[in-house]
């Protein structure tokens, strides 16, 4: 099953490679991994999207906790949570595509953030599966370039990951 794991770690050089090294050394999947400093500059927050059986996910959480630089780990899938990912897509917007691209952008609640005679650059946020759905919905031939941040997640309501 797909899991989103959030963790707080010391904002030190090398900390990221400890986490990514752990995943490659033990053969765990990484679908995406994002990391940035938090409001407390000594801490970084990382979101890892992975998949595996319950036993593997349990091991991943334990192994992450074992890393000396990791302060706290939370499996978001243990409760209710919100997931968001940002995608920026450059699509063809010549006469053939211009109207359709505008319409699809609206349907997916995207925003056109750059325009040229022949292209639109569109920003869309949502769960990873919503972004996948957008890509599925438009004509493949119209896609010029895509870039995605990977998912970030946060617990709903009072579920808080903090030191």
């Amino acid at each position: 099953m797909r899991h989103i794991i959030s963790l707080l770690m010391e904002n030190e050089s090398g900390a990221l490679s400890r986490v990514s090294g752990l995943f490659s050394a033990r053969g765990y999947n990484i679908e995406s991994l994002t990391v940035a400093p938090t409001e407390d500059a000594t801490l970084s927050r990382m979101t890892i999207v992975t998949s595996g059986s319950d036993e593997i996910i349990e091991q991943i959480i334990k192994q992450l906790n074992k890393l000396i630089d990791v302060v706290k780990v939370l499996d978001l899938n243990d409760g209710r949570f919100i997931e968001r990912e940002l995608m920026i897509v450059k699509v063809k917007a010549n006469a053939q595509y211009r109207d359709e691209m505008k319409r699809m952008c609206d349907i997916f609640r995207g925003r056109i953030i750059d325009v040229s005679d022949s292209s639109f650059t569109i920003e869309i946020t949502g769960s990873s599966s919503k972004l996948d759905a957008y890509i599925e919905s438009i004509d493949k031939a119209a896609i010029l370039e895509t870039v995605r941040t990977g998912a970030s997640g946060i617990g709903r309501g009072d579920r808080i990951l903090k030191v």
């Binding site: 036993e55 349990e58 091991q59 334990k62 192994q63 906790n65 074992k66």
Partner: peptide, 11 residues
């Protein structure tokens, strides 16, 4: 002493 040793190969 190591939680990750528990249920690693055998439940």
């Amino acid at each position: 002493i190591d939680p990750s040793s528990i249920s690693k190969r055998v439940k």
